[in-house]
Amino acid sequence: MTQVVSEIRKVATTWTWWLVLAAMAVYSGGFAAFTVLASTLERSPLQLGSPETVVVAYNVAIAVAYVFPLAMGVVVVTNEYRSKLIAQTLLANPSRWSVYGAKTVTGLGLGLLYSVVATAVCVGAGAGLLALLGEPAYLTSAPVIGSLLGTVVALSLWGLIGVGVGALVRNQVVAVVGVLVLTQFVEPMARSVVLGLSDSDVSWVLPGGAGDAAAGGTLYSMMNGVSADSQLPGFLMLGAYALVFCALGAWRFTRYEAA
């Protein structure tokens, strides 16, 4: 517990965590508002007239902003390598498993914080606009509640994945740029290729697709005609990615020299 408190303090004493959180909230909330407004346009392909469709405005964070908790998970590990303070941490606590475990708990906690805030902002923006437009928000319906819970869990797992990636790469600039390129360019193209080549929806085998599926379907899913019935496989797949990256990160963190 002492090591966990130490890791949390390392994050909390910088501006990075709340600047990233603010950026995620604004980005997610803006997309949620845009989704609702776009659905009101004539000939819009978006129709938010049921609980199963309105969720795409509420869980938009998992579709467009999962890179934020992922990047913060990376920062939890790489900050000490960048500042050359990792040696001091390991001198104070020689148990590398304890240090790495505390970093995974911190990354998961940050992911949970980011997911709750971003989801709340999306719900506030989306439901608020729907109310102004005189449309039902369906906030108490089972599909919406299930989707919101799925979004929170999936975004939390992205923070955990980020810790594993940070431990593997160590170089903060390379790691952050790498996750940006992979999540914003490489995987979206890969998912489009998979959807184009396959007669059934198997995009949930990719990390971003698994997150979308875990949330019960997102705006990306709706626009590409992907079914929203793979929530459990999405959870399992994203959880498997988190376990694999955390295990690989633990191997690297405990095996190699600190600097």
Rank of each mutant, 00 (worst) to 15 (best):
G49C: 04
R43P: 01
F31L: 15
G49S: 07
T35E: 09
G29L: 09
Q47P: 00
M24V: 01
A33S: 15
M24P: 00
S44G: 03
N59L: 04
F34T: 14
A57P: 11
L37W: 09
Y27P: 07
G49I: 05
S50E: 14
V67S: 02
A33N: 10
P69Y: 03
G49Q: 08
F68L: 05
M24L: 03
A22C: 02
A25L: 07
A65S: 09
M24H: 00
S50H: 13
F31K: 11
V67D: 01
S44K: 12
Y27S: 14
E42S: 15
P45R: 11
P69R: 05
S28C: 06
L21I: 01
A33P: 09
A23D: 02
V55E: 11
S39T: 09
Y66E: 00
P45M: 08
M24D: 01
R43Q: 15
G30D: 10
L41V: 15
G29K: 05
E52N: 11
A22F: 11
V20T: 02
V54H: 08
F34D: 11
N59M: 03
T40V: 13
I62R: 02
V55L: 15
A57L: 13
Q47A: 14
S50Q: 12
Y66R: 01
A38S: 14
A23P: 02
T35N: 11
Y66L: 01
E52A: 13
P51N: 12
N59F: 03
T40Y: 07
A38Y: 09
V60G: 02
M24A: 10
A61Y: 03
L48E: 14
V64N: 00
L37E: 14
V64E: 01
L46H: 05
M24K: 00
T35I: 15
R43K: 15
A22T: 06
A57T: 14
V26C: 06
T40W: 04
F34K: 15
A33C: 11
T40D: 02
Y27V: 13
Q47D: 13
A65C: 05
S39Q: 08
A57I: 12
T53R: 15
V26K: 07
F34E: 13
A65Q: 02
A25Y: 05
E52S: 10
G49H: 04
L48G: 11
L37C: 10
A32M: 10
A57D: 10
V67N: 00
G29T: 10
I62P: 02
V55K: 15
I62V: 15
A65L: 00
V26Y: 06
G49M: 06
S39L: 05
P51A: 12
R43L: 09
T53C: 05
